[in-house]
Design a protein around this nucleic acid. Structure first.
Lengths: 190, 190
DNA sequence: GTCTATAGATAGATAGAC
DNA sequence: GTCTATCTATCTATAGAC
């Protein structure tokens, strides 16, 4: 949904600032004054475009989901399982990516209207994992896709919160483990 | 570390209230006034026992980790993989459980001193999954344990945030998928 | 329609009374 | 050592100026 072109639109500047703020400082630091400062408008001005905090959050959530799915689409243009694993690990490895999704999860828990947006995200990710498997000619049942999906989410959260060094090696090893039964099923043993 | 017995200790009352608050309303709702109200003390009194919000949070985090690991120990006294899956799904299915761990993850992202506590949690969970596999005579590599761990975390977060109906069936199916390669490897096909 | 000054609410922390 | 009145900072929202 592109906006009518003429005005670069103050609104979009604010939204961009809001997304950046959320990525940097997470859910609790996501306040109107902080966003306003980054967008270089007065806080009281911000409330003209987004009358309430929830309104801003909702708009931001949609953009965040859109951005994340686009990032996945870009990252998953790979032609081998190993490359896919590396790509996923790269996305998962960036704390800002996880932070913003964690914020969204929390927001969804608080405001049920945001659950819809989060479902769009979850469905989008699952869809892309399924497509990936298809493209790589790896047969996967819905449950297997769900497993990979859950594992990716879990790894992201664990990485962000434990702040361990070398997250990527661990993520890659774990994901390899998630994909290996799928691959081996190409030469069925039964 | 049991406290010296005599006094039921105002401090413990406050901590219990704090944990309950965190479970109910999550990280953003976790404020000194709210905790104080639940503990039936003045907010300004609370600061005597916990001079800063972070001090309270740290104490609460330790208790939360302890509680969660104890809950796992209790739940995982099972004698089959299927029972284990059901037990895990039951823990994951309770929003309060996930909410409080999500809060901890976020807190860890903000205050690096809480990462230590979160690591204790993560290590404890991984350890227990490993023990479970051993007890059930299911061979599992560290990577496979890591996969189950990540999947459990991911499922919990996805459930909380999407608020879909029938979470348990989905969780159980996904976990079954995580365990199945481990089980089948008991009768190796190669 | 665009923006701002200001009010109203709530958080966290301090200094000091008992 | 235990507890409280109070202050400051910060957030969100409104009424109204341009």
């Amino acid at each position: 949904m592109a906006r009518k072109n003429p005005l670069p639109d103050r609104r979009d500047v604010i939204l961009a600032a809001a997304v950046a703020t959320l990525r940097e400082v997470g859910y609790v630091g996501f306040t109107q004054p902080r966003v306003a400062k980054r967008a270089e408008v007065r806080q009281s001005h911000l409330t003209y475009y987004f009358p309430t905090r929830l309104a801003l959050l909702e708009a931001v959530a949609r953009i965040v989901v859109e951005n994340h799915l686009a990032l996945l689409d870009e990252s998953l243009q790979v032609s081998s399982v190993q490359a896919a694993i590396k790509a996923i690990a790269s996305v998962v490895g960036r704390p800002e990516n996880t932070r913003v999704l964690l914020a969204l999860a929390q927001a969804a828990d608080e405001e049920s209207c945001l659950s819809d947006v989060f479902r769009d995200l979850a469905d989008g990710v699952a869809l892309r994992i399924g497509r990936l498997c298809e493209k790589l000619d790896v047969p996967a049942t819905p449950d297997q896709i769900s497993l990979v999906h859950a594992a990716v989410v879990g790894l992201a959260v664990l990485n962000l919160a434990t702040q361990r060094p070398n997250p990527k090696t661990r993520v890659e090893a774990t994901l390899a483990c998630a994909f290996s039964p799928l691959q081996s099923s190409r030469r069925p043993c039964a």
